[in-house]
C-alpha cells in the first residue's frame, strides 16, 4: 500500500498542532508590542516606541517563518485569532518587565515543542526550531540588558528620559 499521507506531509500532526499554537503566540507577542509602542508614544518615550515598532515586525516575521514551515512540510497552518491585548502599563519599567516575562514564556513554549518533537522522533521540526532557540537567547538578553540599564540609570528626575534615549542602543 503506497503511503500517500506520508508523501504529502513530512512532519507529525502533534508538531503541527504545537506549531500552530506557537503561530498564535508570536502573533500575540506582535500585537502586545504594538500596544506597548502605542503606550510609549502616548507617554513621551519616543525611542522606546521605535524599539517596540521594530519588535512588532520581528514577531510577525517569527510567525511567518513558522507559517511557511507548515506550508513547506504539507501541514495546515491556521491564521491565528488574537485577543486580550493589554494596553495598560504603570510605567516604562513595567513595560520592559512585561516584555521580559513575555519572552521567557515564549522561550518555554519553544523548548516544550523541541522536547515533544524529540520525543516523537520528528527530526525536521526539532531542527527547524534550532533558529528559534538561539533567537530567544538573544531576545531575552536584549531585554535583560535594557532592564540593567534602567536599574543603573534610575527613574528619578531626568532618569526616565535618559532611559528612553539609551534604548536607541538596542535598535539596529
Amino acid at each position: 500500500m503506497k503511503d500517500i499521507a506520508r508523501q504529502s506531509m513530512s512532519i507529525k500532526v502533534e508538531s503541527m498542532d504545537l506549531l500552530n499554537a506557537q503561530i498564535k503566540m508570536e502573533a500575540h507577542a506582535s500585537a502586545t508590542y504594538l500596544a506597548m509602542a502605542s503606550w510609549c508614544e502616548q507617554n513621551g518615550f519616543f525611542t522606546s516606541a521605535k524599539f517596540f515598532f521594530k519588535q512588532t515586525e520581528e514577531e510577525r516575521e517569527h510567525m511567518m517563518k513558522i507559517f511557511n514551515f507548515l506550508v513547506d512540510t504539507g501541514g495546515s497552518p491556521v491564521s491565528p485569532e488574537v485577543t486580550d491585548i493589554n494596553h495598560d502599563y504603570s510605567s516604562i519599567v513595567d513595560v520592559f518587565e512585561s516584555t521580559l516575562e513575555h519572552e521567557v514564556a515564549v522561550t518555554k513554549s519553544i523548548h516544550n515543542i523541541v522536547k515533544k518533537a524529540r520525543e516523537i522522533g520528528d527530526i525536521a521540526t526539532e531542527r527547524f526550531l534550532d533558529w528559534f532557540v538561539m533567537e530567544q537567547v538573544e531576545e531575552e538578553n536584549t531585554i535583560r540588558d535594557i532592564l540593567d540599564m534602567i536599574e543603573i540609570t534610575g527613574t528619578e528626575g531626568v532618569g526616565l528620559q535618559m532611559i528612553d534615549n539609551q534604548v536607541a542602543k538596542w535598535i539596529d
Binding site: D3, A5, R6, M9, K12, V13, E14, E119, I120, G121
Partner: peptide
C-alpha cells in the same frame, strides 16, 4: 492519523 504514520 496514527495508522497513516502522521501521528505518534
Amino acid at each position: 492519523f496514527v495508522a497513516m504514520g502522521l501521528s505518534a
